[in-house]
Design a protein around this nucleic acid. Structure first.
Length: 393
DNA sequence: TCTGGGGTCCTAGGACCC
DNA sequence: TCTGGGGTCCTAGGACCC
């Protein structure tokens, strides 16, 4: 039996955070603007009603660019770039702090607008979605234009859409004509439109795999498509090699998944300056407890409990370690999480300075609203069981 | 003057059980 | 005393994505 051909859309909001900010500050349209950083650099409204904006050159300290407008990208400033490096490249760019509540609001608006046209949506984060349009009999271009129009009316924002037979190709082609793009692709377009692209355009080939492929002389998707699967297997292992071979042929059978449950909830923070477990014990302890409280709040708000509690430490040299521990019973209680996380902390070396601390709860289950507290760890259970064995009645 | 914060998925070894 | 697989759970790390 052969599956019916599908029509999948990938919709990506254009420079999402920056575009939301421009709705509020229209006087910045056309200027290089970056969103990011950690200190307060909120625009100031002056006596005459005009606004004063901070420039990238005014910024000091840690942090990265979260998003930039296309004008800033033209100056070489992109997402995830360190703020200080960005300031060297574009000192005059306008700097705005992140406003996640706003972005979440506009995210809800655009997803609702899409759902009013086509309801089979897979959430891929705050600014992008997949849409299964297979059931529509309309012209694909007409559906996509209706979706773009609905998004614009609901938010005032533009998006780019890729239309293809699967998620892999839809994702690649939503990026081909940004911003405000609409790209339609069939399997027959593969050699002309997909194969010339870098392997890094494939969702799932990141920096590491990209570098390994480059070392093998594999740069484009065409290079990848021509490779002997056996050679790929010797360098990447069977499962990843098989996947590489398939995606190079534009094959992707993954369905559009319209609902999912969270698997883990975490909070982490990078310190303003590196801290030491001994010299900065009080500061670290307060931050640690606060992270546990925030995770507990998140769990309670989402009405889930978690049975595995973990910590994450990043040292000054950027190396990272994690430790976790599974409890007997799931919890959403800050005290229980703090105790378990404290046990994890005892199992980690604390000689070097730290730049980041994080707390994570996983192994989630629905909470049904009730609230328990404090139960032991697996190790404590074993201890208790040992006692019982020694004292059988 | 490097390198945020929130996630998912995969691999792999050891414990433990049948 | 030595020797099996298979399955599940736990833990640690890493790649990748938005």
């Amino acid at each position: 039996m052969t599956a019916a051909p599908r029509l999948i859309a990938h919709l990506d909001m254009d420079a999402f955070y920056a575009s939301v900010e421009l709705l509020r500050y229209p006087e910045l349209i056309g200027l290089p603007v970056v969103i990011g950083g950690r200190s307060a650099h909120q625009p100031l409204t002056q006596a005459d009603g005009s606004r004063h904006f901070y420039r990238l050159r005014d910024y000091t300290g840690r942090g990265v660019i979260t998003t930039s407008t296309y004008e800033a990208r033209a100056l070489g400033v992109f997402s995830a770039m360190g703020m200080m490096k960005a300031a060297r490249l574009a000192p005059d760019a306008i700097l705005l702090p992140v406003n996640f509540d706003d972005y979440r609001h506009y995210s809800r608006l655009f997803k609702q607008a899409v759902a009013s046209v086509a309801p089979l949506i897979e959430d891929r984060g705050i600014d992008e979605i997949y849409i299964d349009l297979s059931a529509f009999s309309d012209e694909p271009r007409a559906i996509a234009l209706r979706i773009k129009q609905a998004v614009r009316e609901a938010t005032g924002l533009s998006c780019s859409i890729g239309l293809a037979p699967n998620k892999l190709l839809a994702k690649i082609c939503s990026d081909l004509e940004k911003p405000d793009g609409l790209t339609i692709l069939s399997q027959a377009d593969l050699p002309t439109r997909i194969w010339p692209l870098s392997v890094r355009k494939i969702n799932g080939i990141g920096p590491k795999a990209g570098e390994k492929l480059a070392a093998l002389g594999i740069d484009t998707i065409a290079d990848l498509a021509m490779q002997d699967p056996a050679l790929l297997q010797t360098h990447f292992g069977l499962s990843y090699a098989q996947w590489l071979t398939k995606v190079a042929q534009g094959i992707d059978l993954r369905p559009v998944v319209t609902s999912s449950e969270p698997k883990s909830i975490s909070r982490e923070t990078t310190f303003e300056r590196d801290l030491h477990a001994r010299q900065d014990r009080e500061t670290l302890s307060a931050i640690f407890t606060r992270l546990c409280e925030r995770v507990a709040e998140d769990l309670q708000r989402k009405k889930v409990l978690g049975r595995t509690v973990g910590i994450k430490l990043r040292y000054a040299d950027f190396s990272t370690v994690t430790r976790d521990i599974s409890l007997l019973l799931p919890t959403a209680d800050a005290i229980s999480i703090r105790k378990a996380a404290g046990e994890c902390l005892k199992r980690v070396p604390l000689q070097k300075h730290l730049r980041l601390l994080g707390v994570r709860v996983s192994n989630l289950s629905p909470s049904n609203g009730e609230h328990r507290e404090n139960y032991g760890t697996q190790a404590e259970l074993h201890f208790l069981q040992g006692e019982l064995d020694e004292n059988p009645g």
